[in-house]
Computed example of a mutant assay.
Amino acid sequence: MKFSILTLFPEFFNCLIDYSIVGRAIKESIIELETVNIREFSENKHGQVDDYPYGGGPGMVMQVGPIYRSIESVRNDNSKVIYLSPKGKVLNQKKLIELSRENHLILLNGHYEGIDNRVVENYIDEEISIGDYVLTGAEIPSMVLIDGITRLIPGVLSSEESYSIESHYSGLLEYPQYTRPQRFNGLEVPEILLSGNHEKIRQYRIFQSIKLTLENRPDLIDKSKLTDIEKEYLKYLESERG
């Protein structure tokens, strides 16, 4: 998997080289990261890539020319161009899994008041948002995308189980986790986790996932994926909430 990051701040991504799982994936050549400075494709001797918006309004807009040329400098037949934008569809685990199967992702990072919409209409394959809020630029959203995708690529984590139990992967939030010591400030680890009964522990964790999801993200629950006993437990929890 190759990530080509089109940005005004290429140095922003240097930290990824030594960052946890992503850094290891880079060192082991499982993923490749390249940054492209959009300013290098400006036709202005000062490297200017923005201008005032037609029709008036506050701020500046990134020009179509430098962005188009930066895209074309790295695009090939296997490329998918993604524009990180608050106007895009909100990122979720399903989308990360889908993108992890791509060979080459070009991540366009906008700034100022956005980019010339001719780029969006003609040179972008997909527009993605990481949430319903606005950030200064798209560098942090790009990092989110890179991190979320990289951990799904075969060979990056030790086994499929490492991510298959995590929040959102199965449609439920991950169950609570505990480690030593067993007792801290009078707070105990749930006794069932110490029982050694793996089947009971598995069922307990599923119930905890259902409970946590219902409390925090009920929109994620897909009843068609639950067993009969899990549906009964969900029904009980819903009745308890009134």
Rank of each mutant, 00 (worst) to 15 (best):
N44M: 06
K45Q: 15
K45M: 14
H46T: 11
G47P: 11
Q48K: 15
V49A: 08
D50S: 10
D50L: 04
D51A: 14
D51C: 14
Y52H: 12
Y52G: 06
Y52E: 14
P53E: 08
Y54Q: 15
G55N: 05
G55L: 08
G56E: 13
G56P: 03
G57E: 15
G57V: 15
G57C: 13
P58E: 14
Q63C: 06
V64T: 09
V64S: 08
G65Q: 09
G65P: 00
P66N: 12
R69H: 08
S70Y: 00
E72N: 13
V74L: 04
V74Q: 02
V74E: 05
V74H: 03
R75Q: 02
R75W: 03
N76G: 03
N76K: 05
D77M: 03
N78P: 03
N78T: 08
N78Q: 10
N78A: 09
S79F: 07
K80R: 13
K80E: 13
V81W: 00
V81A: 02
V81C: 04
V81G: 02
Y83W: 06
L84E: 01
S85R: 00
P86D: 09
P86F: 12
P86V: 09
P86H: 09
K87V: 04
K87L: 05
G88A: 07
K89I: 12
L91V: 09
L91I: 08
L91R: 01
N92C: 10
Q93E: 11
K94R: 12
K94M: 14
K95F: 04
L96V: 11
I97Y: 09
E98P: 04
S100L: 09
R101E: 15
R101Y: 11
R101V: 04
N103C: 11
N103V: 09
H104Q: 15
H104S: 14
L105R: 00
I106Y: 01
I106P: 04
L107T: 07
L108E: 01
N109D: 15
H111F: 02
Y112S: 08
E113Y: 04
E113R: 00
G114W: 00
I115N: 00
D116H: 05
R118F: 06
R118L: 07
R118C: 06
V119K: 00
E121V: 05
N122P: 06
I124G: 01
I124R: 00
I124T: 06
D125W: 11
D125L: 10
E126V: 10
E127H: 11
E127T: 14
I128C: 02
I128G: 01
I128P: 00
S129Q: 06
Y133E: 08
Y133A: 06
